[in-house]
Amino acid sequence: MSQRELTEITVVGDDDTGLVARVTSLLFERGINIEDLDQAVRDDLFRMTMRVDTAEMETTREALRDDLDDLGDDLGVDVRVRFPADRETRRVAVLVTKESHCLRRLCEAAAAGDLDAELSVVIGNHPDLQPVATEYGIPFHDVGDPDGNPDEDELLDLLERYDVDLVALARYMRILGPNVVFRYEGRIINVHPSLLPAFPGAKAYRQAKEAGVRIAGVTAHYVTTDLDQGPIIAQRAFNVPDGASVETLKERGQPLEAEVLLEAVRLHLADDIAVHRGRTELRDDAAEERDDPDGGYRLGMGPELDRATPDEPTDGPVARPTSGDD
C-alpha cells in the first residue's frame, strides 16, 4: 500500500449554498480522497478546512492549485492549498504590541538555531518593538492606526506575502477577527497570562489578584473565534506570595509566558501535537520524548510536582460492617 500524503485545503468566503458540493466534486473527479472535513460559519463568513489524500491523485500539484484557484474565483471565495512538503524550512510570523519579552525569547531561539523555523516577519499594531526586530534582522511592519487598531486586510496581505506557516501572538493585545482566524485555523498560537480556562480576556493578572488565588500561571493555546477558549497546548504555574501586587504577578509570569509560548511553537513546528475534539494530544513519538527526562517536552509543571503530589488516601472499596460476636 502507498503512503498517504495529507494535503490541507482551506476555503474562506461569504456563506452560500453549494460551496461544499462544488469543491468536493472537483476533488473526487481528480481521484483525491477526503480524509477529514470541518466547516464553520461566523458573522456570515464561511470556513471549510479539509485534509485530503493526494498521494494517488490524477493530476499534478500545479494543476490542482490552478483548478482550485479558478473554482474559488467562480465561487467568490479564497481557496488555499498546503502540500505537506511545500518547503523544508517553515516560516513564522510574530504579532506584537508593546511587550518585548515573548518576542525576544523567540528571536533568541531562532538566532541560536533552536527553533527549526525561520522568523520571517514581525507585525505590530504599534511601532514600539521595531528596534527588537531590527536587532535580529527581521522585517517589521506596523499595521495599526494611532490607537493601535489593526488593518486586518493589510495583515492578511503581509501573511500571504511572507508565505507564513504559523502565526505566534507574542502578547499581541488585539482580538483577531474571523477573517484572519479562519484562514489560519490551527496555525495561530497565543500566550495568555492565566491558567485557562480561568481568567480569560483582558487584565488576567489583575483578575487573579482580585480572586485571591494562591497559584497563578500562563497558557499557550491555539486561537479560535471564541476568545481564549482554543485548545490548550502547554501551561506553567507559579506561587502567589501574600500581598503580591499585580506588578509582582507580572514579574513572575512574564518569563513563563516566554517559555510556554516557545514550547508550544516548537511542538507545532515538529508536528508533535494534534487536536482532537477541542483537546490537544501528543503524537506517539512525542509522548515518548515527553517521558524522557533528558530532552522531552514539558507541557505543564516539571517532574518535581509529581514527586511532591501525594498518592493516598483515595476513595477505594469500603468494607461492609459485620455483625456478631468477636
Rank of each mutant, 00 (worst) to 15 (best):
T24I: 03
L27M: 01
R61Q: 11
G113F: 04
V52I: 11
E108T: 04
A319M: 06
D242P: 02
Q235L: 06
H268V: 11
V132Y: 00
T134Q: 14
L195E: 00
R320Y: 07
L159W: 02
R87N: 10
P241F: 02
R51Y: 08
D15R: 13
M48I: 05
I123M: 01
E312T: 07
R320T: 14
V92F: 03
E62W: 01
P200L: 04
A202M: 05
V77P: 04
G201V: 02
P84T: 05
L103W: 04
I138L: 13
A237I: 12
R105C: 02
V121D: 00
V11P: 05
A216T: 00
A93T: 05
I175Y: 03
L129K: 02
R104S: 11
T219R: 09
P313L: 08
E154I: 10
A112V: 13
L119M: 12
D284Q: 11
P139E: 06
H101W: 01
Q207K: 10
V23N: 10
L37C: 07
G296S: 08
L103R: 05
E185V: 02
M57G: 14
G201A: 02
R161A: 15
D326S: 11
D153T: 15
V218R: 02
T59D: 05
L269S: 07
F83D: 12
V79I: 15
E251I: 07
Q130V: 08
Y136V: 08
T24G: 03
T248V: 05
V167K: 01
G324H: 08
E185H: 06
R105I: 03
A208M: 09
V12H: 12
S120H: 02
V20M: 14
D147G: 11
V318T: 13
A133T: 14
R87W: 04
E135Q: 08
G278K: 01
V121T: 08
G137P: 08
M57Q: 15
V143N: 09
R82I: 04
T322G: 13
F83W: 14
L71C: 14
A198F: 06
D228V: 10
P197Y: 02
V79D: 11
A237H: 05
I215H: 02
A308I: 06
D142C: 03
Y222P: 04
A286C: 11
D326A: 14
A208P: 08
D145R: 10
A170I: 01
E247D: 10
L166R: 01
Q39D: 01
M57W: 09
E118W: 00
L64V: 09
V52Q: 06
S120C: 06
F238A: 09
E251N: 12
D284A: 15
I138V: 15
S25N: 11
R91M: 03
V265C: 13
H221I: 00
G230W: 00
